[in-house]
Design a binder for these strands. Structure first.
Length: 573
DNA sequence: AGTCGCTTGACTTTCACAGTCCACTGTGA
């Protein structure tokens, strides 16, 4: 099985982590991180590029040396340098850097000075008050470590949806080829398109379960077989993700896929309805008394409990059953409804591709428009544009647009919201743009009231069309900054300002729940990829999935509008 | 250390802030 891009990228990132802890040359560390980003952003499979003999050093930030290392990883699955560096290192130090405020230097210092070997050790040391005694550490740091470790979500491993797909899609393709497999599908939160996935639940319809499972555990990414029987098996893949496989007879398919898709609460509600109708619903089928009366398809299951089929993205018991009963299920937005992307970056700031390259990639996706929204001047580390740079970019975009037919680049900016809610550029400049996204990138630690006020003040400017990644969360990595979302959404509604649903699978910010709240108050949502390279535009589908989980219709989503209607919608005053 | 554009060497994100050592370092965006 070919090595996935994400696997190569995380090997490089892992090496960078270890080197950083070892206090290696910072440029060396950065070389690996840059390469990891390049690899992750590639829409083509690096493994297949190696197979076809493509020159990897053509890729940005990849030279002869890294091209060689990548080739080795693809051919052998091994990365000798990483193994060598990891040999005398404690992985727990890497885990400790996930504690906010603890980076490689401090983690290493703590583990060395206190002779620790696990996060549990670290927690004990914090409890005992030993950390405050280490030079460079004090009471505050100790209290923070104690608090973060107590919350306990540091080590729980969930996978972002895109990473899970990397592992799941080849696996399900493999399973479908196994002799005797009639049907195979991934259920669970993966099918519900939840933003992170804990493990993969795979359902197979087939006769000879034993043989099917033998073939399943022979999949070459299987690292460990935890259990293995005639109807079910649990394994861990080398990526660390757990996979549960269940084999059922085809006549149980509908009941089983319904059951394994969940959510648990949705299932409980469904079973209750079955009971009310004198039926019993379980994973094998629908039963009246002792006799089976259905369950071959999901339609049959829902029909038996008096409901139309409900899309998996809605199955959270958040009112979908009542809505189905009333014939009031939402007409969910689809990827085909999307006419363009309203947040992207170019080489002018921290993107990887030019205006023209981004435009062509957007046209290839069938879009009618793409907004270029490079960073503003305060974002120095992201190469933020000066006012002059932005003026020039506006001209460049106008010139490019003259050459396009039926497509339009929108001149925009992702302007920083400063601490007091002022914008990084004056309205006089922003008014020259087609569209303005305003985002927070600094001062993430303000209290709830200040942070909420700050964003609302930014929305007071009539030039601001969209608030970018509104809560600042990074899935599994950074909690949202404290915000009064209700007040924020109301303020957005009052001002006719849209909120972004950032489609990057590391963010998916807004959450499904906030999307729904916003739409209920009439706030439009922009589903935007925040692409930093042409490949990043492909993340749109994750945003659409999230929007669907948030019950959004086509009309709730800003970038389903034609340019003609969008340009009118962007005029706030 | 590694890339890139040039052939032998220049360049690689910058800056504010918290926290502890009150001048400095590490962290995080």
């Amino acid at each position: 099985m070919p090595v996935h891009n994400s696997e190569i990228a995380s090997k490089f990132d892992h090496l960078a982590d270890l080197l950083e802890i070892k206090d290696a040359n910072e440029f060396r560390v950065r070389a690996y991180r840059n390469a990891a980003n390049t690899i992750r952003d590639q829409s083509r499979s690096i493994a297949s590029m190696v197979k076809e003999g493509d020159d990897l050093s053509e890729l940005p930030d990849i030279g002869d040396d890294l091209a060689g290392k990548i080739t080795t990883i693809v051919r052998t699955g091994k990365f000798p340098l990483l193994e060598e560096v990891a040999e005398d290192m404690d992985e727990a130090i890497v885990d400790a850097t996930r504690i906010p405020g603890i980076g490689p230097k401090r983690a290493k210092a703590l583990f060395d000075m206190l002779d620790l070997s696990s996060l549990d050790d670290l927690e004990d040391a914090a409890e005992e008050g030993e950390i405050a005694d280490v030079s460079g550490f004090g009471e505050k740091t100790q209290a923070r470590i104690k608090k973060e470790l107590k919350q306990g979500d540091i080590t729980e491993q969930r996978f972002h949806l895109d990473t899970a797909e990397d592992f799941a899609e080849p696996l399900i393709a493999y399973i479908r080829e196994i002799d005797g497999v009639e049907k195979a599908e991934i259920a669970g939160s993966y099918r519900r398109r939840k933003e992170t996935v804990g493990d993969l639940d795979i359902l197979v319809a087939g006769q000879d379960g034993g043989a099917i499972i033998d073939a399943f555990v022979a999949y070459d990414e299987v690292d460990e077989v935890e259990s293995k029987g005639k109807t079910r098996s649990t394994v861990t893949l080398r990526s660390g993700i757990n996979v549960d496989l269940r084999v059922i007879p085809e006549e149980s398919w509908g009941a089983a896929i319904h059951y394994f898709t969940g959510s648990k609460k949705h299932n409980v509600a469904g079973r209750r309805r079955a009971q009310d109708r004198g039926l019993k619903l379980n994973e094998y089928g629908l039963y009246e008394e002792k006799s089976r009366v259905g369950g071959a398809t999901e339609d049959e299951v829902y029909d038996a409990i008096g409901l139309p089929w409900i899309d998996p993205v809605l199955r959270e018991d958040r009112g979908e059953i009542e809505a189905a009963e009333e014939g009031d299920l939402p007409d969910l937005v689809t990827l085909d409804d999307i006419r363009g992307d309203l947040h992207s970056h170019t080489t002018a700031s921290d993107g990887k591709h030019s205006l023209r390259q981004m435009a062509e990639a957007a046209m290839d996706r069938g879009y009618k428009y793409l907004a270029i929204t490079d960073h503003s001047k305060s974002q120095t580390q992201a190469g933020g544009l000066s006012a002059d740079d932005l003026e020039r970019q506006i001209d460049d975009i106008a010139e490019l647009n003259d050459g396009f037919n039926g497509f339009r680049l929108l001149a925009g900016c992702e302007v920083d919201i400063l601490e007091d809610g002022d914008l990084d550029f004056p309205d006089s400049l922003l008014s020259k743009l087609d569209l303005v996204v305003a985002s927070i990138h600094s001062k993430l630690d303000l209290d709830e009231e200040a942070q909420t006020d700050r964003i609302i003040r930014a929305m007071d400017s009539p030039e601001v069309n969209i608030i970018g990644h509104p809560t600042g969360r990074m899935l599994e990595k950074r909690r949202p900054y404290p915000l009064d979302m209700e007040r924020l959404i109301e303020a957005a509604a009052d001002r006719g300002c849209a909120l972004e649903l950032n489609a990057n699978p590391n963010r998916l910010d807004l959450s499904d729940i906030h999307c729904r709240q916003a739409a209920e108050l009439g706030v439009r949502i922009a589903i935007s990829t925040d692409a930093h390279a042409t490949g990043g535009l492909g993340n749109m589908r994750y945003g659409v999935d999230q929007a669907r989980r948030g019950w959004l219709n086509r009309k709730d989503v800003l970038n389903t509008l034609s340019w003609h209607n969008l340009s009118r919608a962007l005029k706030r005053s």
